[in-house]
């Protein structure tokens, strides 16, 4: 890490290589189990209420026999200029000094305004209280709070893992190194299509990849300045 980067707070960012991603959705399940995301069951799923902090969008292009498929994992983009933030009347969603779009469940009153203004549709609402049929609740991650009915939730960039990585570095009396913090989705990714790190550190993997000529951001034209960078297919 350069001296300059050390002084500043880390700025977390993710890179997703669409050329590697196969659409396998291992990341989706990993996120669910890591972050205590409840399943809602068939009736609720039919109403469009299932929760996936990260999802893999699938697009068909062309007609038989020239059909092409595009897979695109979408999670909260942790926008630098997040449209979800200013509209929240109670500051339940806000920007942290580490560049995360944080969500304080205890603060949220459930207007759903933020979700309406998120251009990526990555915010999920708890229409009912979550249920884990016992003993499935034993598998809940003790480091992630279970959200109650009426509050909004979304990808946190696995904040608990960020904190853990930082604590560990502190315990070992050193700086947080590239690769110390690995969110659950990145950890499990079967093709290593995802990268996570400090984009303020010019030597980090995410910084390096974000300068690739394949790098784009979703809906860049909206000026949201996402912290998730996508690498396009092709050379």
């Amino acid at each position: 890490m350069t001296e300059e980067a050390k002084e500043k707070k880390p700025q977390w960012a993710m890179v997703i290589d669409l050329d590697r991603c196969t659409g396998c959705e291992a990341c989706v399940v990993a996120c669910r189990v890591e972050n205590n995301i409840p399943t809602v069951g068939p009736e609720e799923a039919a109403k469009g209420r299932s929760i996936n902090w990260i999802r893999v969008e699938r697009y068909f292009e062309g007609e038989y026999p020239d059909v092409k498929v595009k897979f695109m994992p979408v999670l909260c983009q942790h926008c630098e200029e997040a449209p979800c933030e200013p509209v929240c009347p109670v500051y339940a969603t806000y920007r942290t000094d580490e560049g995360l779009n944080a969500q304080v469940y205890n603060r949220c009153v459930g207007t759903r305004y933020c979700a309406n203004n998120c251009p990526y549709t990555v915010r999920f609402f708890n229409f009912f209280d979550p249920v884990w049929d016992a003993p499935l609740d034993k598998a809940l991650n003790p480091e992630v709070s279970v959200r109650t009915r009426g509050v909004m939730e979304k990808c946190t960039f696995c904040i608990q893992r960020i904190r853990k990585g930082q604590e560990k570095a502190k315990d070992e009396d050193r700086e947080v190194r590239d690769g110390d913090v690995v969110p659950a989705c990145v950890q499990t990714c079967q093709t290593k299509a995802m990268y996570f790190g400090n984009i303020a550190d010019p030597e980090s993997e995410v910084s390096r990849l974000s300068k690739s000529n394949r790098a784009t951001r979703l809906l860049e034209e909206l000026g949201t300045k996402p912290r998730v960078i996508y690498l396009n297919k092709g050379d």
Binding site: E44, G48, R123, F125
Partner: peptide, 15 residues
């Protein structure tokens, strides 16, 4: 008593 789920709202039609 049950929660907003008794409405027809969903994702993405939150209102």
């Amino acid at each position: 008593s049950r929660g907003l789920g008794v409405w027809g709202i969903n994702r993405p039609v939150f209102w």
